[in-house]
Amino acid sequence: MLEHILSLGAYLFCIGIFGLITSRNMVRALMCLELIFNAVNINLITFSNSFDTQQAKGEIFAIFIIAIAAAEAAIGLAIVLAIYRNKNSTRIDQFNLLKW
């Protein structure tokens, strides 16, 4: 049972990383970021369910991760807004000013 859920978490993690590397849209990249955080949450809750039923520290960590991921998504969306006002686009590959 444990290894199934852990492999689900690892699978979600890989999907998130893959999406971050390949996505061309900023909002989609932020969604992939959330996916990775959800993989972490799945891992934590599984471990907490199996080893730590007394104190449930993993679930507390998961709550903190949810809150922080929401803050990160809010900041990301604010940045997307600022970018959209300046360039009328949120595509990542149109940003290539900074390079050597």
Partner: peptide, 17 residues
């Protein structure tokens, strides 16, 4: 809408604590 959405997301999620 996004301004409200941003404010809402923050205050909504913080209530989880």
């Amino acid at each position: 809408y996004y301004m409200f959405a941003l404010v809402f997301v923050i205050f909504d999620v913080e209530t989880v604590f």
